[in-house]
Amino acid sequence: MSDEKAEKNTSPEGTGLESGEGTTLPDKEVDSADTRTDDDRQAVDVAHATGVGRWAELSPVDSEPVKIGERRGMFGATRGQDTSGYGGLVTPTLLPGASARPYGSYFDEVADILGRALGESVGYDDAVEKVVVDRGEMTLFVAREHLVAVARVLRDHPDLRFELCMGVSGVHYPGEPGRELHAVYPLLSITHGSRRLRLEVTCPDDDAHVPSVVEVWPGNDWHEREVWDMFGIEFDGHPALTRILMPDDWPGHPQRKDYPLGGIPVEYKGGVVPPPDERRAYS
């Protein structure tokens, strides 16, 4: 965000500002209530002028962490092995929720430019479900139907220029109904000094389809095949979506959480060590 831009947008939108201040804000190192002081007014003004990030201030519900499961007991031991007396303890597993503006670093700039560029076509609010800034990394949760449009803008816009997509990594969250499968795309912009950005797309288990970005980043060809192989996400529009690491006729998708690790017990010095997924575990 440049200074001249901020000066242009001096018309105050007081209502939006006040509603933003009244919301509960996530307590995070990067984006905490401390960082959101009066001198962030410019960022808020720009956000309002461009129509970007308004939801983050108006709908505090989005900032709530995402629950992907729960942990029982004190030490995470399962199969009746928790003898600590804390077996009834239930702790939710919470992933970081949406962040509110300003995001800090170059993230606001990226969001602003993306917002303006998408405004002409699909619209930022429709395409980007939420923005999570966590541990100094920015994640854009993109609606899957708009993934290719967002990818194209990110690659082609001269102020964004994320030329390289460092593949795609699948993650299976069986505890997040309707959004079980995630595809995570780490992007890199060499032009802008190795800036990084992460796209995340979700799809449900029973409709595991995500559009392919191979037409935008051809180098994602094998990466998408790997995620199909390991997680069963179908990348629509991929030129040849076949298995890549497992044999062609392999049933199932091995890195999903409901797929067993397998293994055999091993004898060692007279004792028998069970396979890794049957050992006592604390997680």
Partner: peptide, 18 residues
């Protein structure tokens, strides 16, 4: 704990792999 659920190993029908 949902991450490494032990029940999955007993129920082969529910697993897409088996």
């Amino acid at each position: 704990m949902t991450t490494h659920d032990e029940t999955i190993y007993d129920d082969t029908a529910a697993s897409p792999g088996l």
